[in-house]
Design a protein around this nucleic acid. Structure first.
Ligand code: ZN
Ligand code: ZN
Ligand code: ZN
Ligand code: ZN
Lengths: 142, 142
DNA sequence: GCGCTTCTGATACCTGGTATCATCTGCTTC
DNA sequence: GAAGCAGATGATACCAGGTATCAGAAGCGC
């Protein structure tokens, strides 16, 4: 099989008990090569460009599989529906996105945990889900 | 006109330069009476229950108007598309939602600003948009 | 290679939301 | 209180993102 995704991504897919198929390999490869989170339509287009035979449903199913495997995260963005991002690190974490160049940085989860803990304390809540969508302009785009 | 929304909500709509119509009054009233954020379908149903003549487009347009007027906020929720919430305070702020009873509390914006400022400093970003989606269980539902 | 299990593509469908446009109505002015 | 106009409404069609179904195809462990 012609490999499109990196070996590490392929092994993360396998580790989640999922099969490597040419479709998954290609879709993961497209996401891995992207500089910024890809929106649904962007991803569909980019995939169709490389193999027009891949069905719409397969793309969305693969996205779901990759999210389940912790390889891909959906990042909400202000205004639109957000995009999909292939992160080198597995597990739940949060992102800071540059609105101009699309550059993405992972937040320091310690800092996030500190904030969430403080909110939980102040409000007497058990917080078991935090979605953070931070965006702005990076040092280069300011 | 039979008033459904409170006088304060009506005056906030007027203050934003928008007209009071029976439809807006009713939709705002439904949101004002809700205990928890209403999803799109829930709102459509609740509105249709009170006046079946109100069109789908009007409901969504009114939601947009109320958001523009700062009267309603869209709150993202884990899993689904989130819901619409009529807040007593205008302006951009964030929410903490109980997943069980739907209870909503406003976050202390000072605390949010502190966190966002720390992230901005650490990453060298200008952060100009922060969407926070915190949810968990309140003291009563724990 | 074999076979089980999973995956795929086509298609139809669903939800949330927007565009269009002819008609109607809240609000201001007189 | 009536007139007139900007702005709102409802019907309808449309769009994007995403899911359900199902017959057929193909990955992987043996
Ligand atoms: Zn990441
Ligand atoms: Zn940038
Ligand atoms: Zn609020
Ligand atoms: Zn609760």
């Amino acid at each position: 099989m012609l490999c499109v995704a990196s070996e590490s991504v392929r092994s993360r897919i396998l580790a989640a008990g999922q099969r490597i198929t040419p479709q998954r390999d290609l879709i993961a490869g497209v996401l891995e090569a992207a500089e910024a989170p890809l929106g649904a339509q962007e991803l569909l287009d980019a995939v169709a460009l490389r193999d027009a035979g891949i069905g719409r449903a397969t793309v969305f199913r693969t996205l779901q599989s990759l999210q389940d495997a912790g390889v891909v995260q959906h990042v909400p963005l202000p205004g639109d529906q957000g995009g999909y991002l292939l992160c080198p690190t597995s597990g739940h974490h949060h992102h800071l996105v540059c609105q101009r160049c699309g550059r993405v940085e992972d937040l320091l989860e310690d800092e996030v945990a500190l904030f969430v803990g403080a909110v939980a304390r102040d409000h007497g809540f058990d917080i078991d889900h935090a979605g953070l969508e931070l965006s702005g302009h990076c040092s280069g785009c300011r």
